[in-house]
Amino acid sequence: MADGGLTEGIKIDLVRLHETWMELVFPRQRTAVHSVLGKWQPRARGDRIKYRIWAALGAPIVGLLYPFLLVGFAVRFNARRFDSATTRLGIVGIVVLTALLWGGLTALTRLRLELAGSLAVGAASIVAVVSAALAAIFARIGGRGTTVVFGYPFAMNAVFLPPVVAALYDPSLSGVLDRSETLAIFLLDNVLYVYDVNEYLRASFSLEGIGVVLMWVGIATPIGWFLGFLVTLADLVRPRSGGTGGGDTDGEAAEGSA
């Protein structure tokens, strides 16, 4: 029974994802069951050909996107927990909680590192606390676009920055720097080679000190955008409970087990 429910859920998600693809070009493709007019169907021969070609092009794209959709469900589920925590604690509560977390890291580094290292981690922790506050603010007062463009990147920087700065000064975490160098080389050679961006970065920055921090800020920000895109995709396919887009009321319960 459980397997049947899972299979049916996957089928519904794939159909909705394909309908979303179809609606990029053709009207009334999604949630047609709730429409008085029903799903739009092509009548002219040329429209039928275009309709079938677009549907065929969408099939492999849907297959490629579906794993990312599952990740989007998981991210959205945890993002809702953050939203709930923000609602309960308020912006001030989030700031206090983040300050306690990264303040504890700063205190720990004071026992292990020289004063310069501890001060650097403390500065990174302050930036992380401010980033967490901004992420909470954008999540509460902004729409979807504001949350994706600003909220998620600030949240990622609030998570990444203090540990990376601590790794710069703690010899026991030197493996982080080694992996950072490997990752930087991979990104420069395989991602940022267009328009000689990699050559400019190599000439302008060295992978030490602030260079490592800027690299991780540069990584955390697009990761935030990517996660925001996945959540947006999840909202399109399986709308939030009580939201628009078909009145899906079982989305939250289903995504918790996705």
Results as ranks from 00 to 15, higher is better:
235 D>Q: 15
248 D>F: 06
245 G>L: 05
241 S>I: 03
239 P>F: 02
225 W>Y: 05
232 T>F: 11
237 V>Q: 03
251 G>P: 00
226 F>G: 11
243 G>M: 09
234 A>L: 04
240 R>K: 14
231 V>G: 00
242 G>R: 01
241 S>T: 10
243 G>D: 15
239 P>V: 04
226 F>V: 13
241 S>F: 02
246 G>Q: 02
248 D>C: 10
228 G>F: 02
250 D>P: 01
226 F>T: 09
245 G>A: 06
229 F>H: 05
224 G>L: 04
240 R>D: 05
226 F>I: 13
234 A>E: 14
225 W>C: 03
230 L>V: 03
228 G>N: 04
229 F>S: 06
224 G>M: 06
242 G>N: 11
223 I>M: 13
234 A>Y: 00
251 G>Q: 00
239 P>H: 07
243 G>K: 08
224 G>F: 02
245 G>H: 03
233 L>C: 12
243 G>S: 15
246 G>T: 04
226 F>H: 10
249 T>N: 12
239 P>S: 11
235 D>I: 04
245 G>F: 02
225 W>M: 03
249 T>G: 13
251 G>Y: 00
229 F>C: 09
240 R>Q: 15
241 S>Y: 01
231 V>C: 05
228 G>W: 01
250 D>F: 10
242 G>P: 02
233 L>W: 10
247 G>T: 06
234 A>I: 04
247 G>Y: 09
250 D>N: 10
236 L>N: 13
238 R>Y: 07
244 T>W: 10
242 G>H: 03
224 G>T: 06
233 L>H: 08
234 A>K: 01
230 L>E: 04
232 T>Q: 14
232 T>E: 15
236 L>H: 13
228 G>T: 08
240 R>E: 08
233 L>T: 14
249 T>Y: 11
231 V>F: 01
251 G>W: 00
224 G>P: 04
223 I>Q: 07
244 T>D: 12
242 G>M: 02
241 S>R: 12
236 L>W: 13
245 G>T: 06
242 G>A: 09
232 T>V: 14
244 T>V: 14
246 G>H: 02
237 V>A: 08
226 F>P: 05
235 D>L: 14
227 L>N: 06
236 L>M: 13
242 G>S: 11
228 G>Q: 07
228 G>C: 07
251 G>D: 00
246 G>Y: 01
247 G>N: 13
237 V>R: 00
237 V>P: 01
228 G>M: 08
223 I>F: 14
240 R>H: 11
236 L>G: 13
224 G>A: 07
249 T>I: 09
232 T>N: 12
236 L>V: 13
238 R>A: 14
236 L>Y: 10
252 E>C: 02
247 G>P: 02
250 D>S: 12
230 L>G: 01
252 E>Q: 12
252 E>I: 07
252 E>H: 12
235 D>M: 12
239 P>C: 10
232 T>L: 11
242 G>F: 01
227 L>K: 05
227 L>R: 03
237 V>M: 09
247 G>C: 06
